[in-house]
Design a protein around this nucleic acid. Structure first.
Lengths: 210, 210, 210, 210
DNA sequence: GATGAATGAGCTTTCATTCAT
DNA sequence: AATGAATGAAAGCTCATTCAT
């Protein structure tokens, strides 16, 4: 009888699993969530059989990639809070950093189907909620410090964030990169305190965006 | 006399064609550019055969939907220029309006494949260029009038615009709509003259985004 | 009330019918019996609708083309008998001439499906039988005159004939034509009286080949 | 060790591949090169998927069947040369034998489309050329020995050969078989030295028929 | 456990035939 | 009566998933 409940994968199996997730992240980002499973397997250097042994079907793989991704962003958010001197700076850093870090799977999530898959997964929901708690904290902190306009909520910031996660397509990658940075900055300026325009509706908080 | 070039489709054929494009626009927007053709046909109220008679393959349909879409946005842009008192207001109106109007095919264009298809079509390229000329005019005008920050170009605005065209997904549509409006407003505030943050890189003009 | 039982087509309708058969003959010969009906219609200069008004379906068209073809060959055979001084010469002429004349639909008939269609049509069966009677006459005549080897029957000749009706494919048409003429001549030499080799089996007569 | 180039298919895959080619040969011969792929798959006892895994599309399958076929004929030709006492007898044997053996794909080649497909395949071209070299040798040998009329070339023989490869259609198979044998014999007699009729054109050599 | 072969459902596209104009 | 548009069944091909090696 083995002891561990979650029998921790053998070293090589572990390696395979990680390679697959890493490969899937890239491939999903590049070709969307409908790429042939075989493509992902090849790019991970394993056979389809192995892929299916680890992830019972495409949905499971998408879910795992999402978990992996949210974990990273959550880590980033916490690091930003710990390391930056002001809430505002933490927020700004998250906006910049996470884009560069995760220009990947999120793309895939644009797809209605992918969204559905991810939406009801408890692990992902949990991570998402954890992340929104951190963002909410940053938002309130930055507002108290007078750096962030008071009429936005964590939901607004998350939406802006989501918008940015869609990688720009452009024939010239250096333009795409520059453009992304410029767009973020423009948005950040729009978020700054004392803006000129009252926002329509009401602040979206972290529960509004479910 | 008579002799229109392009023998102008029989009345019923014309009607069908229009219905198909309209349906495709919606369906592409909702499910992405890979929806079964049959779906599109059904939703247009015709048989697949009819769809294929009019558009030799999926690519052709995507192209035509894109042409249709760009034409509308171009029209919008020109109307905004004609009807709004300042360049800045024309620009703002375009940002708001086009999102509401064209939350559709653009979505599709997120897909790498769809982009490829559209990129090399001469009709689309032409429309796109025409549109960028209008935007460029608005940008320069608004900058001269001191409403728009001087360190952005038509390319930056187009990128922002493109960003917005990806419809937000949300379980609750009223939240999605509100969120879109708020995001646009935040961006517009970021675009206003006298911003706090110098933008990275240099203004992207209409040629940068090819 | 119209008088004729077979209401003889109006002049223009007649013309259409003939054009369609002529076109079908060529197209079948070139692309086989499965060409799109639309192709045939276009090449006959009419709409599909017209084609279908005249011939209820593809089978009917194939049948009519076959009737047209057999009639021509039958005419050729009779002309050869009338005009040539010996039976042998009539036979030879038929072999050469009909190839040139009817390199067409016969090709199509190689197709199993086309054969089935044609096999049971009474008009075609009749024409075929008439033709075989003429060939039989030539064969017996030429044998009595000592020009044709005595161990062949009308069936053998028909089979040889059928063989030749399959047009040779070749990249260079002048070679194809020369090759056909040479093959016929070689066969004719093989048919001549006093051959070196006894033929296997027994003479095939006109009933053997059904 | 190991390291065969072309990783030599797993045993079961190999078996399937062979079954598919064998089935395709028969089915093509019977129904022409346009039979539903599903038909071929069923008759080979595999699913369509398997067929498509092995042969990317119909063209590829046709090509492989052709390669298989030409290889067999080439083998026959060489065996005939080795085993028969005279060149003439080798030629005669090839004519008889190959018909019986390969009454198959050749049929398919009657189709214009099939021809195109096969024409530009280097493997097939090579086999064809090899075969023509053997035929050329037989022809010259038989002519030197005085058995074959001097005014024919390897091209003429190849054309005759091609003609024969089109299986005769007949309701009664024993008649079809007898007829084939008789036709071949008649042709062979036509090929014998001291023929009565000068052939039109000039001897076609193996390059004439490209 | 890993691999890649086999399967078959599903989507794309074509085309015979019908029918509105 | 002629035309060409619409339809839908059928064929080609792809790919998720299963299973033998």
């Amino acid at each position: 009888m083995s002891a561990d409940p979650q029998i921790p994968l053998r070293a090589d199996a572990r390696r395979n699993r990680d390679q697959i997730i890493a490969a899937a992240r890239l491939i999903f980002a590049e070709y969307g969530p409908e790429v042939p499973m075989e493509e992902i397997a090849r790019s991970a250097g394993v056979g389809v059989g192995t892929l299916y042994r680890r992830f019972p079907d495409r949905e499971a793989l998408i879910r795992e990639v999402a978990v992996d991704n949210f974990s990273r962003v959550l880590q980033d958010a916490r690091a930003a809070i710990t390391e930056e001197p002001t809430w505002w700076q933490a927020l700004v850093r998250l906006l910049y950093q996470s884009v560069e870090l995760h220009l990947s799977i999120q793309l895939a999530m644009l797809s209605k189907k992918a969204l559905e898959i991810v939406k009801d997964d408890p692990a992902i929901t949990q991570l998402r909620d954890d992340l929104l708690v951190e963002v909410d904290t940053m938002v309130r902190g930055a507002q108290e410090e007078g750096d962030l306009r008071p009429d936005v909520g964590a939901g607004d910031v998350a939406m802006l964030f989501a918008l940015l996660l869609r990688q720009m397509e452009s024939r010239r990658p250096e333009i795409a990169e520059m453009s992304t940075a410029r767009c973020i900055t423009i948005m950040i300026d729009g978020l700054r305190a004392n803006p000129g325009t009252p926002l329509p509706g009401r602040p979206l908080n972290r529960h509004d965006i479910n």
